[in-house]
């Protein structure tokens, strides 16, 4: 049955109009910029920019630092995404258990990393990661391990960034998963219990399938968020050492907001957009096939 147009406009209209004005128009403006040589001289006087076709995109494909940033970002995504989702889902399930004590206390504490100001918490983390005076190496020392120079070693800098990223994201996703878990009707568990399913089996055959919309959401949003990795490397390492933590958005930021090459930066943004869009689209197709 078709929904009346009036209802569609009332319910979806306001959001669409606002997104159109504040997101879509600016996006189109920057898409346009990506076909220009918009640089430092054009910011005060836009007429100093001229169209150069696909030149920015061609230059980008030949830019070794862009490829480096792309690889770094994918590295972060591949490691951080499963880690975040598995940890968040497990903790959400543990908190949501009937028999768990102090649920609210755990929830609030787990969420703390997500609400704390990134600048301040990055200072704390760089202190914790300090090779000589940091808490992490002190702890490893207790176990008889000599910890690395986390942020100063090109091999360990990205893992350090990933640690901060995951630490910040888990609490946030716990909240999402708890909301999803609350949405699962009791009778499904009751039925499974009657069939003699163990609680682990219930988790696999009731919880996970029922959570599919939430898992899908978290996966999509995590991919989008991690591919736009910026704040953590910006605060912790600035992209170094030896470009080992240079992410795509950090590179974009450098080109656009340090060198003021906004045309070039826009082309980076759109290459990233196409990648994210493709990944999301594939996920949606795959998600549908599973549900069907």
């Amino acid at each position: 049955m078709k929904t009346p147009l009036k209802a569609i406009i009332t319910f979806i209209g306001p959001s669409i109009i606002l997104l159109l004005i504040f997101m879509l128009i600016p996006i189109i403006v920057s898409l346009t910029l990506s076909f220009t040589d918009f640089n430092v001289f054009a910011i005060y006087n836009w007429s100093n920019a001229s169209f150069i076709g696909f030149q920015n995109y061609i230059n980008l494909m030949k830019d070794p630092l862009f490829w480096r940033a792309l690889l770094n970002t994918l590295y972060a995504l591949v490691v951080a995404m499963p880690l975040t989702i598995i940890l968040a889902l497990s903790f959400a399930a543990l908190i949501n258990r009937e028999a768990t004590y102090f649920k609210n206390f755990f929830k609030v504490s787990f969420y703390l990393p997500s609400i704390t100001n990134t600048v301040a918490i990055a200072i704390v983390w760089s202190w914790m990661l300090n090779p000589d005076y940091g808490l992490i190496n002190w702890f490893l020392g207790l176990l008889g391990i000599k910890g690395p120079n986390w942020l100063g070693d090109p091999a360990w800098a990205m893992p350090s960034v990933i640690m901060l990223v995951v630490w910040k994201a888990v609490g946030y996703n716990i909240i999402l998963f708890i909301a999803g878990l609350q949405n699962i009707p009791d009778y499904l568990y009751e039925a499974a219990e009657l069939d003699g399913a163990s609680r682990f089996q219930q988790f696999l055959h009731v919880t996970i399938p029922s959570l599919r919309p939430t898992i899908f959401f978290v996966t999509v949003m995590t991919i989008i968020g991690y591919l736009q990795l910026f704040e953590e490397p910006y605060m912790l390492t600035g992209g170094g050492p030896l470009d080992s933590t240079l992410s795509i958005v950090l590179y974009l930021y450098r080109q656009g907001f340090r060198f003021f090459k906004l045309g070039y930066a826009s082309s980076i943004a759109f290459v990233l957009f196409i990648m994210i869009f493709a990944l999301t689209f594939i996920q949606m197709k795959v998600g549908k096939n599973i549900e069907a």
Binding site: S15, S30, L252, L272, F273
Partner: peptide
């Protein structure tokens, strides 16, 4: 998908 597309463009650029 259009709505979702708006979060795929890094905010810095807009």
């Amino acid at each position: 998908l259009l709505v979702l597309g708006t979060v795929m463009v890094p905010g810095q650029i807009t």
